[in-house]
């Protein structure tokens, strides 16, 4: 294989990875934020203290977190078919990616929100803030640097997951590395893919760090 053949493959793979990871990140951010906030609010003594809800949510998150991604990938195939209509292709890969990443991000959200001092929350309540105002104006806003850092970690984890998703027909750079680099012994493709992945992860991390710095006023 010549570089003329490799370049378009890399371009296509990179685009598919960005597409998969991008859409999964968007859905994960929303789902993880919701579950993470609920985990904090429903705990005993929390703003919405409801321990049964907390218990169930915690259980679901832990199950999601403990399944190896490669098993999750296969296990959700029927669900994927029901939603996307197919189990092969980039869109189909987004379903397991999202299901795998939401519990991961939810725990990060939970931790970031817990970092907001109890005192600060109390001060807001003492000012007459409603629970909704406390969540939006205090918890989520004060936790923004932590949330941004957590999202960066999640995106990078998703890049890793997407390589596995590629093996079941999701496409992307991981798929490229496995099909060409591993199965066809095209070492150049393997190396090129790895280099692109490293650069991609590096770029995501740097951007994430920049955002965190901008948001943080501590």
């Amino acid at each position: 294989m010549t570089w003329e053949d490799i370049w378009p493959l890399l371009g296509e793979g990179l685009w598919e990875t960005i597409y998969m990871v991008g859409i999964s990140t968007a859905i994960t951010a929303l789902g993880g934020l919701l579950i993470g906030v609920l985990l904090v609010l429903t705990e005993r003594g929390g703003l919405l203290s409801a321990w049964p809800v907390n218990l169930v949510l915690g259980l679901i998150v832990n199950v999601g977190r403990s399944l190896p991604f490669i098993i999750l990938l296969v296990a959700v195939i029927p669900f994927t078919r029901a939603i996307v209509g197919t189990t092969i292709g980039t869109e189909a890969a987004i379903v397991p990616l999202t299901i795998g990443a939401i519990p991961f991000f939810a725990r990060i959200v939970e931790t970031a929100i817990r970092e907001v001092p109890r005192d600060v929350v109390n001060a807001a309540i003492a000012s007459g803030a409603s629970r909704r105002q406390v969540v939006y104006k205090v918890l989520l806003r004060e936790a923004r640097p932590g949330l941004a850092a957590g999202l960066t970690i999640t995106i990078i984890a998703l890049v890793g997951y997407s390589a596995m998703a590629g093996t079941v027909g999701g496409g992307g750079l991981g798929d490229l590395a496995i099909r060409y680099g591993y199965q066809r012994f095209e070492t150049e493709v393997m190396v090129a893919t790895v280099v692109v992945l490293v650069l991609f992860v590096q770029a995501v991390q740097s951007l994430g760090d920049l955002v965190v710095r901008r948001l943080s006023h501590r």
């Binding site: 001092p117 005192d119 600060v120 001060a123 003492a126 007459g128």
Partner: peptide
């Protein structure tokens, strides 16, 4: 109660300010 709380000021040992504001 929330409306009444607006008429009761409170200050804290560790200030309890919003770091993002």
């Amino acid at each position: 109660l929330r409306r009444e709380r607006q008429r009761i000021g409170m200050i804290h040992q560790h200030f309890a300010l919003l770091s993002s504001r």
